[in-house]
Structures are given as structure tokens and as C-alpha cells.
């Protein structure tokens, strides 16, 4: 072998872009801040607190646990970071308190964001 063969080199992922080893993270107590996954949402559920009876059907129905009950203020809270806009909560709500509103109607709509979060 006369010629020097190419090297494999190294692969350097900068610290700020590195993903946790095997994507294993501390379990979220409430919200997993490291992996926000709602950036493909087209519509979001908007709640009418006058119609809402706090029956928690949305809390049970949501596959991503995006609804929670704030006891102090007695309101349902929606998690924008995980809601995929699947609208199951809207279909399940017995008092028609939820409406699907296009993301484009919001200044912070995910379709308007340059970087998801």
C-alpha cells in the first residue's frame, strides 16, 4: 500500500444539538420539555369556559394527555406543546364546549413558527 488511504474521521455533534443517550430522559412529572411534538398540528381545540362543565371527558379522551384540570382556577388547561389537533376531545365533549380553530388564525400558530419551539 503506497498511497495513504482515506480516514474515517470523527463525527462531532455539538453539545447544544446532542440528543440524550438513546433518547432516554428523566420521566416527565407533567410535561416532557425535551421532546415537543405538536408541530404538525393544523387545528387546535379552543374551549368555551361558559359551556364547559369540568366533566374531564377531554382529559380522559386525549391520547397525549394534553388536557388537565387547574383546581385553583377551576378551568381546564390545554397543552400546546403536545396537542396534535386530532380533535378527539372536540368529538367527545358532551357540552359542545370545544371548537376546532385553524392554526393560521393564531399569531403563535405552529404553521407560522420558523422553529417549532
Amino acid at each position: 500500500m503506497s498511497k495513504k488511504l482515506p480516514e474515517f474521521g470523527t463525527i462531532n455533534v455539538p453539545h447544544e444539538r446532542a440528543v440524550p443517550f438513546g433518547a432516554v430522559t428523566p420521566a416527565p412529572v407533567h410535561v416532557q420539555e425535551l421532546f415537543m411534538t405538536s408541530n404538525w398540528r393544523i387545528v387546535r381545540p379552543v374551549i368555551d369556559n361558559e359551556k364547559c362543565t369540568r366533566c374531564l371527558t377531554c382529559y380522559i379522551a386525549c391520547p397525549d394527555s394534553c388536557w388537565s384540570y387547574n383546581e385553583e382556577e377551576d378551568v381546564m388547561e390545554w397543552n400546546a406543546g403536545f396537542c396534535k389537533g386530532c380533535q378527539i376531545c372536540i368529538k367527545q365533549c358532551p357540552s359542545d364546549a370545544l371548537t376546532a380553530v385553524p392554526e393560521l388564525d393564531f399569531p403563535d400558530g405552529v404553521v407560522r413558527l420558523e422553529k417549532p419551539f
Binding site: V19, A23, V24, P28, Q32, F35, T37, P116
Partner: peptide, 11 residues
């Protein structure tokens, strides 16, 4: 801990 979470495209 959480194993196998959804990651974002930029990750």
C-alpha cells in the same frame, strides 16, 4: 425515566 419518546425532525 422515559424510554422511546417521540423526537422532533431536527433531533
Amino acid at each position: 425515566v422515559s424510554h422511546g419518546p417521540q423526537i422532533r425532525p431536527d433531533q
